[in-house]
Design a protein around this nucleic acid. Structure first.
Length: 276
DNA sequence: ATGGCTTATTGTATAAGA
């Protein structure tokens, strides 16, 4: 069941007069633990959309009141302990949809809503664990179902953004050590082919519209001082439809939250769109 | 050197993440 906090207009952010839109995605690895970071980040950055993954809480625990107090509406598709996705916005969240409609799945990994005319899909893609795990074929099948559903969504929404934790590093530039990672999840050919099939729908990796260099990551392992040594992966992405591509102004990885005390192992990715 | 950490669980060790 979707719960919705009442819409509250931000006095300093009149919807009709904004000249740009800021869309972000962040795997928070437990919203219970990370809520202070999320509230601070929302206040400092004032995004138009923030997609969260791994809230790891049931809908009854979701902090609607704290978000409303900060000026944000939210919709959540959660479960206990694992997974859980949310969309947060100062604007109305319309036509909310939960879960892949074409895939029987007990895991809460999808939530979608329309915000200011943009179809926003928030996805937490299966990790897969290892190539010989039964979770790996589940990952590939889940990605097939996502592809089919996004295909259908694109026929109904010209302006579409697919944001989330893809658990896929699209190419070797997105992995700190491709040799060490060979044969593991996040970089396997089948996963990368699934990512390419999403691009073949006319979606674009918005980060790569602006940045071609290697070594730009959105996730770093908690172990081995991986963040300090920049041993990471770029696995959190914002894909945009053809209609949104010409509106893209910049996409950045905001490493500031990863430097805080008790951080998520992921950090936000932020896309700025011209509000045409 | 394949671990090292972090989170959640009706826990006190295990599972999962990436």
């Amino acid at each position: 069941m979707v719960m919705r906090a009442p819409f509250k207009r931000q006095r300093n952010q009149p919807t009709l007069w904004r000249i740009s839109l800021k869309l972000a995605t962040w795997n928070v690895n437990s919203l219970t633990v990370r809520l202070p970071h999320v509230l601070d980040w929302l206040t400092a950055n004032q995004p138009d959309v923030l997609c969260l993954q791994e809230t790891k809480q049931e809908d009854s625990k979701f902090p609607y009141a704290a978000l409303q107090e900060a000026g944000f509406n939210a919709v959540h598709n959660g479960q206990k302990t694992y997974n859980g996705v949310a969309i947060i916005s100062p604007h109305p969240l319309q036509d909310v949809h939960l879960d892949l409609p074409n895939f029987v799945d007990a895991q809460k990994r999808i939530i979608a809503a329309t915000v200011l005319g943009v179809r926003v899909i928030c996805a937490y893609v299966v990790n897969g664990q290892a190539l010989d795990s039964e979770k790996y074929p589940y990952k590939l099948q889940w990605l097939e179902a996502l592809h089919a559903w996004v295909t259908d969504e694109l026929t109904q929404h010209e302006k579409l953004a697919l944001l989330g934790d893809y658990n896929i590093a699209p190419d070797d530039r997105d992995c700190h050590d491709p040799v060490a990672w060979e044969g593991q999840v996040l970089v396997s050919p089948a996963e990368r082919a699934a990512f390419e099939r999403l691009l073949a729908l006319g979606l674009h990796d918005s980060y790569r519209l602006f940045h071609e260099e290697a070594g730009q990551f959105s996730w770093w392992d908690y172990r081995m001082a991986a963040f300090r040594r920049n041993m990471g992966m770029r696995i959190d992405h914002i894909l945009v439809s053809e209609a949104l591509k010409p509106l893209c102004l910049d996409c950045v990885i905001d490493k500031a939250p990863r430097k805080l005390e008790r951080p998520s192992d992921h950090t936000p990715v932020v896309l700025t769109l011209a509000n045409a």
